[in-house]
Design a protein around this nucleic acid. Structure first.
Length: 272
DNA sequence: CTGAGATCCTGGGGGC
DNA sequence: TGCCCCCAGGATCTCA
């Protein structure tokens, strides 16, 4: 699964549709270490009575804006799920750690098999994401800005793309896919990449993210959106998870190597 | 500041 | 068939 920007965007849009304007009536936490609250506050107590104003995304976080000005930032890490259930529906998924009962009888549940995900309640005005990188689909992420971001960076370009303090929201799937689209070798030190190749990569990042959002994200294992539906972008992946399969561009078999302790799929034929 | 490595956690896959 | 072992993976922290 591993939700990245397109999956989190899809989840947030679904949640905005399903829970905006509703009030949190009950909060049940069965695994306390997955929730975080501001000093002196208790997660469940603080949330009861809050109304969800809107639901958005920042990097890979789903962000609920609450009527008090506080926010609830949820990171799903690898296996987290945020799903809305209709009144009376019984959640069959076994790893549910937080359930919020809403004013209309529906429920918002947070489940996570590996328990790496977190729900963080933030005090009003908390600059929690100040060190987060630029949003790659925002106007601020220009080709020129990206070109200069790579100056002096000796780290492999693949590792650079995964650094959330530089660019927010890119994970393993879209780093691999964007590098393939741009024809760049994932291990290449960022600063050694030519200006034209940097511009190609900038375009490829935006293109692959846009296309995946269009397809409602990638479901490689069991990612589902807020309505429990799978995405469709797994059918458009060129290299990710396709070890040994022919490259869609040149036909050479896709290889898998490890870069920065992360599995990396790419084509030796057309990624120089 | 930069980069490398350990850590967390458990389902599932591989090996036998 | 069943059991054991070990790996994947994002962010955070420590250390050089």
């Amino acid at each position: 699964m591993v939700p990245e920007l397109p999956e989190v965007e899809t989840i947030a849009r679904g949640l905005a549709h399903a829970v905006a304007g509703k009030t949190i009536a009950t909060v049940t936490v069965t695994l306390p270490r997955v929730v975080v609250a501001p000093p002196g506050e208790t997660f469940a107590t603080a949330l009861v009575g809050e109304t969800v104003v809107s639901v958005g995304r920042r990097g890979k976080y789903v962000v609920f804006a609450l009527a008090s000005g506080r926010r609830l930032a949820v990171h799903l890490r690898m296996t987290g799920r945020l799903v809305v259930q209709a009144p009376g529906y019984v959640e069959p998924y076994p790893h549910t750690h937080v359930v919020m009962g809403l004013s209309d009888g529906s429920r918002l549940s947070f489940a996570d098999a590996r328990t790496f995900g977190r729900m963080r309640l933030l005090a009003a005005g908390d600059p929690w994401d100040a060190d987060g990188g630029v949003e790659p689909l925002s106007e601020g992420f220009t080709s020129d800005a990206f070109v200069s971001m790579l100056d002096g960076r000796r780290t492999p370009i693949k590792t650079f793309l995964l650094d959330q303090t530089r660019i927010a929201g890119i994970g393993n799937i879209y780093a691999c896919e964007a590098l393939w689209e741009a024809g760049i070798r994932p291990s290449r030190p960022a600063h050694k990449i030519s200006k034209p190749a940097r511009r190609r990569l900038h375009g490829a990042i935006r293109n692959v993210l846009h296309r995946s959002i269009e397809a409602r994200g990638t479901s490689v294992d069991d990612y589902v959106d807020a309505e429990g539906l799978k995405g469709g972008f797994q059918n458009q992946l060129a290299v990710y998870g396709r070890l040994g399969e022919p490259c869609p561009r040149c036909g050479k078999p896709i290889v898998r190597t490890v870069i920065g302790q992360r599995g990396t799929w790419w084509c030796r034929g057309c990624q120089q």
